[in-house]
Amino acid sequence: MTRDLRSTQDFYTEVLGWKFRQGSLGDEFCVALDDGRPVAGIAQLTQRLRGTTAWTPYFAVDSADDVAARIRERGATVAVGPLEFGTGRAALASDRDGAVFGLWEGQTLRWAVGRANAPACLELRTRDAFAAAIFYAEIFDWATQRPGGCDVTYEDEQVIVRQDRRIVAALRGGGVEEAPDPHLRPRWHVHFQVRDLPSVISAAVAAGGTVMSPAPQTGRPGGRSMICDPYGALFTVTDAPEND
């Protein structure tokens, strides 16, 4: 979501090399393409679409109404919807700690986290990764044998979510013996894999973005850097696959 659709497109074209086409949801939406493949959507904030400038993950669900009910039952918030958008229905919600995420019921484009040029991984930074993992597993039916289910494991002080053996999300909080961090602002982060991390960082700065975490040392693989675009949306770029 952004307040300036055209300028946002220009920024991500300069930084990530994306091209854009109009989405099926109207003039206020566009789809980002990398090598001709859809990787993300960008929407203009309007009176109808209110919110803050941010990258937000949307999870595909069979029934937005059912998932919205589960969210409310567990003390979290459904801020918008479910509403009809084009051929589907969408809702915007936040978990019990305030991390914002979306739901989408309906046809989806041929993209999937961790595959091809789509986002490499989703990362939830939260106060209590275990509590968050239980919440999301319950509302999305993770850790079940149903079609579309995910494997949820604890590795290296983080909760890892896999689908078809690929990492699709990581939930990170305090260490095992540590209390949840009361100063952490929970949020979902989107990771995009890039071919030349130093060049992407330089392009982001030149296009008006801000590097929020230290840039990696040149020539060392496995680096990542968090960037804030000129309009306030945070995202992470990485030069190494998020999946083993």
Results as ranks from 00 to 15, higher is better:
Glu178Thr: 11
Phe192Arg: 00
Ala207Val: 01
Glu242Met: 12
Pro147Thr: 10
Ala91Val: 02
Cys30Trp: 00
Gly81Cys: 11
Asp66Cys: 01
Glu242Tyr: 04
Phe59Asn: 11
Asp141Trp: 01
His183Asn: 14
Gly208Pro: 00
Glu157His: 11
Gly232Gln: 09
Phe235Lys: 07
Trp55Gly: 05
Pro180His: 09
Asp239Ala: 06
Ala169Asp: 01
Phe59Arg: 04
Arg50Ile: 13
Arg6Glu: 14
Met226Ile: 12
Asn117Thr: 15
Asp164Met: 10
Asp95Met: 02
Cys228Asp: 12
Gly173Asn: 01
Met1Ile: 12
Ser199Gly: 09
Ala79Cys: 06
Gly26Ser: 00
Leu5Arg: 01
Leu83Ala: 13
His189Phe: 12
Leu49Tyr: 10
Leu234His: 11
Ala179Gly: 13
Ala32Ser: 11
Thr8His: 07
Ala137Ile: 03
Glu14His: 11
Ala116His: 15
Ala64Tyr: 03
Leu83Trp: 07
Val113Phe: 03
Trp111Cys: 13
Val152Gly: 01
Ala129Trp: 00
Gly114Gln: 04
Ile134Trp: 05
Thr56Ser: 11
Ile134Asp: 13
Arg162Ser: 11
Cys228Leu: 14
Ser202Pro: 00
Gly102Thr: 07
Pro186Gln: 03
Ala207Ile: 08
Ala143Pro: 08
Ala129Met: 13
Thr153Val: 14
Ala137Gln: 09
Tyr12Met: 02
Ile201Met: 09
Leu184Asp: 08
Asn117Val: 13
Thr53Tyr: 04
Pro119Cys: 07
Val176Ile: 13
Gln158Leu: 12
Val78Gly: 04
Ser225Lys: 03
Glu157Gly: 05
Arg21Trp: 04
Glu28Gln: 09
Trp55Arg: 00
Gly219Met: 08
Ala132Tyr: 02
Val190Pro: 03
Thr126Cys: 15
Asp27Ile: 04
Val176Lys: 10
Gln9Ile: 03
Arg224Asn: 12
Gly174Asp: 06
Gly223Asp: 02
Thr87Leu: 10
Val152Cys: 02
Met1Pro: 14
His183Ser: 14
Thr87Trp: 10
Gly114Leu: 07
Asp196Leu: 05
Asp66Leu: 09
Phe29Asn: 08
Arg165Tyr: 14
Val100Phe: 05
Gly75Gln: 04
Val168Gln: 02
Ala215Ile: 09
Ser213Val: 01
Glu123Asn: 12
Gly75Pro: 12
Gly51Gln: 08
Ala132Thr: 05
Asp164Glu: 15
Leu171Ala: 05
Ser199Met: 08
Leu49Phe: 13
Asp244Ser: 12
Lys19Tyr: 10
Gly219Ser: 04
Ser213Ile: 00
Trp18Phe: 02
Leu171Ile: 15
Thr8Trp: 02
Gly173Met: 06
Gln107Ala: 15
Arg220His: 07
Gly81Val: 06
Leu5Met: 03
Asp97Cys: 10
Thr53Leu: 09
Gly114Asn: 04
Gly222Lys: 03
Leu33Ser: 07
Ala40Val: 00
Ala137Val: 05
Gly222Asn: 05
Arg127Gln: 14
Gly17Ser: 03
Thr153Arg: 13
Ala68Gly: 04
Pro186Trp: 00
Val168Cys: 12
Met212Phe: 06
Arg125Gln: 11
Ala206Lys: 08
Gly88Val: 06
Leu197Trp: 11
Arg224Thr: 09
Glu28Lys: 06
Ser24Gly: 08
Ser94Ala: 15
Asp151Val: 12
Ala60Val: 14
